[in-house]
Amino acid sequence: MRHKDLEAQLRETLEDIKLSSDEKVELRKLAPSLSKDERRFLRNKGFDLARASIDADASQTFKVLKWLEQVVKTLDSGALENAVESSAHFSPGDECRRKIIDLCHQAKQSIDICVFTISDDSLSEAIYKAHQRGIKVRIITDNDKSDDLGSDVDDLAAKGVNIRMDQSPNHMHHKFAVFDQAILLNGSFNWTRSASRYNQENVVVSGEVAIVDAFQRKFEALWSLFG
């Protein structure tokens, strides 16, 4: 795709000063096919367009900067797709736990975790280490399990990790995480020691754009709901 066409596509996303879900998906689908020169061109053009928009109407500064942030993150995460190898992992055994720890260690920008409970100290340690590195970590969990013996949720919250809980009579029973808004980990696996030692569980890892975005949107909706 020529630079002129790329610029036109980018300008179109700025018309309402918002990168919509559909536009984000299209941009992430495009990113893996871009050359380094084309990706550099789009990033630079995004900054140029943002500066021009702010100069034209300073009252829109926050919205324009939010658009620019989303464009840059989407280009970066979309470029990762080719490097994400889909995989399946099973327990009993250390496969699932090891994969979660590896993804926490490899995260560069953000980790969004949506799980029923967290009581495996090795997983909690990996989460906290990511937080210490400056990774934006958010956790959604269920209040019924937070008071269980061995739960690490309160400890993580006390250490500054952002946590929100489902306080309703029902259960927030999801078990997924999104890393850098580009890699999805999802499955039956509870983030507990017994899940690794005894239970028949699984997690699947995927970088498929539409699936990752669907789970990211669900996370954002739950984050708002439980705020």
Rank of each mutant, 00 (worst) to 15 (best):
S110V: 06
W223Y: 15
R40H: 07
V137A: 11
A56P: 09
L49Y: 05
E69F: 07
V72H: 10
V25D: 03
A182S: 15
Q106H: 01
A130D: 07
A195V: 11
G134Q: 08
S87C: 11
L42D: 04
N199H: 14
L68T: 14
S77F: 02
G46T: 03
N143C: 12
A31P: 07
D37V: 08
I101M: 14
N190V: 05
G78S: 09
I54F: 07
E85M: 10
D94Q: 13
S21R: 12
F215Y: 12
L156S: 05
L30V: 04
K145S: 13
S146P: 01
L80F: 02
K63G: 03
D16C: 09
E23T: 03
D213G: 00
D121G: 05
I163F: 06
V212A: 03
E38D: 15
C114I: 00
R40S: 06
V71N: 04
A210V: 14
N82K: 13
R193N: 13
R2A: 00
A195C: 09
A50G: 10
H89I: 02
D142M: 09
D144F: 15
D57P: 14
N143Y: 12
A58R: 12
L185Y: 01
K108S: 06
T13S: 02
I140V: 11
D147S: 15
V178M: 03
E26S: 12
G46E: 02
L34A: 03
G134M: 08
G187L: 08
V161W: 07
E95F: 07
D22M: 03
K18N: 09
A126C: 07
